[in-house]
Nucleic acid binder design. Structure first.
Lengths: 247, 247
DNA sequence: ACTTTTTCTTACCTGCGGGTAATATATCGG
DNA sequence: CCGATATATTACCCGCAGGTAAGAAAAAGT
């Protein structure tokens, strides 16, 4: 809207960094705008059916302009995917920073992950085909996926160790839970009557009730801390930037 | 192997139907061979990366020969998908024909469905993008998916009605279970140390243990009929044929 | 006001892959 | 052995979408 720069033109040239910074910012904002438009189209129509012309058109520019920000179509796909991965990563670091039993952590992860699957960048994690990426980028993506999967298993294993989760095969249990969550990304529609929060709550309960240990402590049903209300929302901080030049 | 027709050439022309039938059979077998080759390649590399030349090459023929059996690439995709759908349908009819509580039926369905996801045609149900189909075929596929989803919900609702399943939202519970199962189609690898039977058993237990009613009757842990052993395997009959000519 | 750098556009190239036409070859019925 | 039918091949078309080159337009720096 407002075109006034942070440093008005009348001010002395004391700080030439700010305009420089603002230029960089503008560029990154445009980059992100491209990603937002692209991820939306990719999810709507599928990567292969979306042309770069369409992406550009939606941004009121033309195709070659995109090449100022990205090397090619596959890099756009990868960056979309990365956005989602960063969101998950920040969720995980946050949970790891906190405390709680294995079961409690697993519940937090399930809740946050479920909500993430209802976002564009979150869904892109499970709806994009990694085979569309360059081998290099695909390797990065595979590694990230592996880390996420390992986190699920770790929480389950930790829960078994601390007695909050009953004995089971962590690998298969993680597959079952993660699969259920990942599938949200395939069926969730914004106009579908089910709010992300409701889905997250329900899945948290449904997916962990079978795992809770029944022997030592009594069956845990709702979140132990807040008896009735669930966590309203969790602010997903993040937004790192890679800073890798285009040319 | 053996090329001798059912009616040897020396016999009188009393039954000209058999050679005709055998011709038809040969044709259908080739059609199916195309589908088997195609589904494998589609799963391996992804639909868009597979060329018809590759499909043909794997069958030791050339691309245009495929057009004797299918209208085009998308029809091949659809027929692969249909093979999977027919397998699920036959599983469902079999379960519906039998008896058992809602929970028991749900368990049967989960078990059979999990095993199916470890097959090529089963996986094609969840790994192919319906948007690659013509609108007409996509509508058929959507309807089939809806029927399958409805079956999950029906079993859960029936279980709640007969007391074998505790109160829950059938829609979300079905999503959670089906999602977990569908995801198998994405991660299962034949060379991955986990046998389909083991996966099916584990998922059957894991996905239904949280749903079993604990109030009225005692907790149901294993299958109620057979106390220790689970169903070893279920023969998936089926293999209907559409019989729609190409030209 | 001039130059320089960044950003964007118009016009084009190019390869790939689905699909088709014309034609050859095997198979079948007689 | 001969025509008819199905089945396969070789050669081709062509539309599309990713990517590029060259230059205009806009900003930034001085």
């Amino acid at each position: 809207m407002d075109s006034a720069p942070p440093t008005p033109p009348s001010s002395p040239p004391s700080s030439p960094w700010l305009p420089f910074e603002s230029r960089r910012r503008a560029r990154d904002e445009k980059r992100e705008a491209v990603l937002r438009a692209a991820v939306q189209l990719f999810l709507e129509q599928g990567y292969h059916r979306v042309t770069l012309n369409e992406v550009a058109e939606r941004l009121n520019i033309t195709k070659p302009a995109l090449y100022n920000y990205f090397r090619g179509k596959d890099e756009i796909l990868f960056e979309c995917w990365s956005m989602g991965a960063e969101l998950v990563d920040s969720v995980i670091t946050e949970i790891n920073a906190g405390s709680g039993s294995g079961l409690a952590r697993l519940r937090k992860l399930v809740h946050a992950y479920a909500a993430l699957m209802a976002t564009d960048f979150g869904a892109s994690l499970v709806r994009f085909d990694l085979r569309d990426l360059t081998e290099r980028n695909a390797a990065v993506a595979r590694a990230a996926k592996k880390r996420i999967d390992a986190t699920f298993r770790d929480y389950i294993a930790a829960g078994m160790a601390d007695g909050s989760i009953k004995a089971c095969d962590p690998k298969l249990a993680a597959f079952a839970i993660a699969g259920s969550l990942n599938w949200i990304g395939h069926w969730y529609r914004r106009d579908g009557g089910l709010s992300p929060a409701a889905i997250a709550d329900e899945f948290t309960a449904r997916l962990t009730e079978g795992l809770a240990a029944v022997g030592p402590q009594h069956t845990i049903k709702k979140t132990p801390g807040a008896p009735r209300r669930r966590n309203p929302r969790r602010k997903t901080t993040g937004k790192k930037r890679t800073g890798e030049g285009t040319r």
